[in-house]
Design a protein around this nucleic acid. Structure first.
Lengths: 230, 230
DNA sequence: GTCGTTCGATTGTTATACGATCCTTCAAAA
DNA sequence: TTTTGAAGGATCGTATAACAATCGAACGAC
C-alpha cells in the first residue's frame, strides 16, 4: 500500500486560518452586493461584529485588497473597491489576451473540453429554469474552464482574480443576472469550434464576444456617470 | 491655475507604511540570495533584527507571500519559496502566453517601442562593460517593456510578479549573471521586427526564444536534482 | 525499531495602549 | 460670503504583552 494516493486528500485536511475564513465571509458579502462599492469597512465595527481581533481582521483585509476587492487608504481604512470604466477596459483587455491566447493553442482533442461542455450545459439548464443566478455562475464557470485548458496554475489564479473583479463590475448593470443571457448561445458555438479543434476560429469569435460585452458594460458605466441619482 | 498637473506627483508624496518598507528590505535580500530558497524566516528573529513588531512583520510577510517569494505553512512559519521544475515550466507557459500575445498586437508604429529600444541599448552597453549584473537587469527590463506595450496595468503587474519569481529561479544557475548574455542579440532582433510593425514575426521568434530559455533552466533543475551536494 | 509521551520553541490570536492622521465642526478674519 | 485656522473626536498604524494551539525533537516503553 502506498501513501501517494492520499496526497490529493491533503488539501481537504489543511485547516484554514481565521484570517482566511474571515476573508471568505467578507468576499461573499462583497460579491453579492451586501457591501456595495465605496463602502468603508471600519476595523472596529467589522471586527466586533465577526468576533475577531483587529490583527486578524487586518490580515483578512490584506488578503482581499490583493484580490482587488478592497482598496486601502492610509489612515483612512479599507473601502470596497469602486471600479471605473477604465478598469472595465483593462479587465477585458486582459481577458482577450489570456482567453483568446489559450483558445488559439487548442488544435487537438483536448480532454479539458469536457469541463467546458459541462459549463455550457449548466448554463442552458439554468436558462430553461429561468434561474438567472445560476446562469451567471455557469457563464463565469465557462470562461474559467476555457482558461483552465492551458493547464497553468498561475493563469488559473490570474483569471480567478479577473473574474472576481468582474463580479464587482456587473453590479453597475441594471439587471446583472440577465446580462449573461445573450452570450449563452455563443458559448456553445465556441465550444463546438473547440471540439472541431478549431482553436483559432474559436479565439476569433471569443474576441468579438468579449468586445461586445465590454462595450455593453462601458456604456452602462457611461450612463451611470451621466445620471447617478436619476 | 489647475490642480490636475499635481495629480501625478501624488504617488511621490504618498508615504509608505512600515510593513511595505520591511517587505522591500526582505524582497531585496531574497532576490540577491542573502536568504536562499528554503530558508525559514522566524518572526522573532527577523522582527527584532529589523526593529519592528510581530504584527507589522506579519503584514510584510503577507505582502511577500502574495508575490510568491515566501510560502506560508500554518503553525510553521514563513519560508523562502523553493521553486520546482514544474514552476519553471508554468512560468514560461505564462510568459509565452502573455509576452507573445502582446507582441502579436503590435502592427503599427508603437510609441512604447522607444522604451524597449532603451532596454536593448542598456543591455548592449552592459555587455561592453562586462557588467553582468546590469546585463541581467537590462534583460528583465526588456521583457517588462515588451509587456508594457499592451498598456494594461493588470498585465504589467502580472508580469512584474512573474519576473520576481524568475529571479528566484535564476539562482539555480551556476552562473546566473551570464545566463542572459546569449539572449541579447535576440532582443535586438525582436526589437527590429517590432519597429517594422511585424508583431506576428516578433511573437514567433520570442516563442522560440522563451522555449530555449525554459529548456536551459529546466535542465539546470534536473542537474541540481541529480547531484545536489556534488 | 515502532509507538506513545513529554517538553521546549514558535506560531495563531487576542487584548491593550499610545501616537499619528484624518474629518468635522465652528469660530474668526479677510 | 468666503476663506482660513484651531479644536475635537474618531479611526488607523504600530508596539507590546499574553495565552492557547501546534509542531518537532528528545525521551522512554513495549
Amino acid at each position: 500500500m502506498t501513501t501517494e494516493a492520499l496526497a490529493t486528500d491533503r488539501a481537504l485536511l489543511a485547516r484554514t486560518s481565521t484570517a482566511e475564513r474571515v476573508a471568505a465571509v467578507l468576499r461573499t458579502r462583497i460579491i453579492e452586493g451586501y457591501f456595495p462599492p465605496g463602502t468603508r469597512l471600519a476595523e472596529d465595527a467589522i471586527g466586533s461584529a465577526l468576533g475577531v481581533s483587529r490583527n486578524t481582521l487586518r490580515e483578512a483585509f490584506r488578503l482581499l485588497s490583493h484580490e482587488r476587492l478592497l482598496t486601502h487608504e492610509l489612515n483612512r481604512g479599507m473601502f470596497v473597491r469602486t471600479l471605473t470604466a477604465e478598469d472595465v477596459i483593462d479587465l477585458y483587455r486582459v481577458r482577450r489576451l489570456v482567453e483568446c491566447g489559450v483558445l488559439r493553442t487548442v488544435t487537438f482533442p483536448h480532454p479539458g473540453l469536457e469541463a467546458v461542455a459541462a459549463a455550457v450545459r449548466d448554463g442552458e439548464e439554468a436558462l430553461g429554469a429561468r434561474d438567472w443566478q445560476a446562469l451567471g455562475t455557469a457563464n463565469i464557470k465557462f470562461h474559467k474552464e476555457l482558461v483552465a485548458l492551458a493547464g497553468s496554475p498561475r493563469t488559473d489564479e490570474l483569471m480567478s482574480g479577473i473574474l472576481a473583479e468582474l463580479r464587482l463590475v456587473f453590479h453597475v448593470m441594471a439587471d446583472p443576472q440577465r446580462f449573461h443571457e445573450p452570450y449563452l448561445a455563443r458559448n456553445r458555438q465556441i465550444l463546438e469550434q473547440l471540439q472541431r479543434c478549431d482553436g483559432s476560429g474559436a479565439a476569433d469569435e471569443l474576441d468579438v464576444y468579449l468586445r461586445d460585452a465590454e462595450n455593453q458594460l462601458v456604456q452602462a458605466f457611461a450612463e451611470r456617470e451621466a445620471g447617478p441619482g436619476a
